[in-house]
Nucleic acid binder design. Sequence first.
DNA 1: GGTCGAACGTACTAGTTAGTACGTTTTCAT
DNA 2: ATGAAAACGTACTAACTAGTACGTTCGACC
Lengths: 224, 224
Amino acid sequence: MSERLSEVRDSGSTERAVRTQGDILEVATAEFAANGYAGARVDEIAARTRTTKRMIYYYYGSKEGLYLAVLERAYAQIRRVERGIQIDELSPDEALRKIAEVTYDHHTTHPAFIKLVSIENIHRAEHLRQSDTILRENVTAITLLEQVIERGVGEGLFRDDIDALDVHMVISAYACFHVANRHTFAAIFDRDMLEASLQDSHRRLIGDMVVATMTDRRGAPSTQ
Amino acid sequence: MSERLSEVRDSGSTERAVRTQGDILEVATAEFAANGYAGARVDEIAARTRTTKRMIYYYYGSKEGLYLAVLERAYAQIRRVERGIQIDELSPDEALRKIAEVTYDHHTTHPAFIKLVSIENIHRAEHLRQSDTILRENVTAITLLEQVIERGVGEGLFRDDIDALDVHMVISAYACFHVANRHTFAAIFDRDMLEASLQDSHRRLIGDMVVATMTDRRGAPSTQ
DNA sequence: GGTCGAACGTACTAGTTAGTACGTTTTCAT
DNA sequence: ATGAAAACGTACTAACTAGTACGTTCGACC
């Protein structure tokens, strides 16, 4: 029982071993996203892989370990996209719009990630909480937004009673919803929210919303 | 095999039978919401009920049939809330805010409903599509919004390039996200989106957003 | 060319879980 | 009252599914 349960590929791995692990994660991501945690079948994942079930347990130890690896990989991916956003030469409102649009584009092009987040929430984030990596890396995701908002407020352009986390929430909510609730929405209203011809106007709408809201200074009273 | 598979309680049902069915649905809703479709256990549902597993199959035929009944009940509930919204004496912007706030309040107070919607989406709405009732009853959910927007556009108050379905989507997205992604959000950012002290400002924010967006006529160009 | 451990494959098992066979009680119309 | 159907309970099974025991191959290093 001197088997690995490794931190992904370590130095001793052969080329083939690396490919095997990647292959498993790729297939597992699709399987978990398609059927949920409990609905996913380890046998099914193994069957669609170039390798066997034995290898899944060899590298990831358990179904839960595999799921965790899948989750960490998906979160790592969006972090990479976020780190790549360039807003230096943009005005605060343009930068805000840019961030919204990049987030929207990431989410709409990565449905598996959104599904994993949904699944994780159904299970009260019990797996995600176990991953120090995800928790550590993702808190920093809003520092960019914080800087932009600070600049906007400083220039007297933005209202100051909405913080970065609220804005992040609004943007995520919009982008996630498009992907996460696509199927029930389509079933009920017969409109595919991800249809190519709607993409541009939807991308513009989330930009309009955050900018309009942040630059609006009326702040009407609640109806209750 | 002359057993029922009834449309819920029909006239022949005794008081006890009605209670048994309601009891099952209540418990099943919690179980499905807590564990997803595949993760839910029929035995567990039975154990928490005043009755037995036999009765679940007697009334609902299968795990899937039970799940469908749960789903229909949850959708029926929100329809009832929507039908109760009174906006006759409100101006278009006030009415819009009202609709947003009522939706927000419904969703935040019915987490099980939101979870069922999430679960249903993970399974590509395959169950929901089978329910004529849900599909029929829910398309009409946006007629109210359509009327309000039409009035607002007519009065020159609202921009005319965003339709009712888009507005419904924005409101639902915001309200759903609070509940659906509560756990991952809390795990990463350490902020409980449903904390009582934030409720008022979050309710106001969704109102601000839709009103600010609809009454804003700049419509800045996309950054790409 | 031998050896040691990493990487891999096959065949199996123990435990779980949706669903059912069979029998009993309750209700109600006549 | 009584007969029939609705409503209910117990004990079971067939199938599935995560996980493993055991053996083999590959590759690097001496």
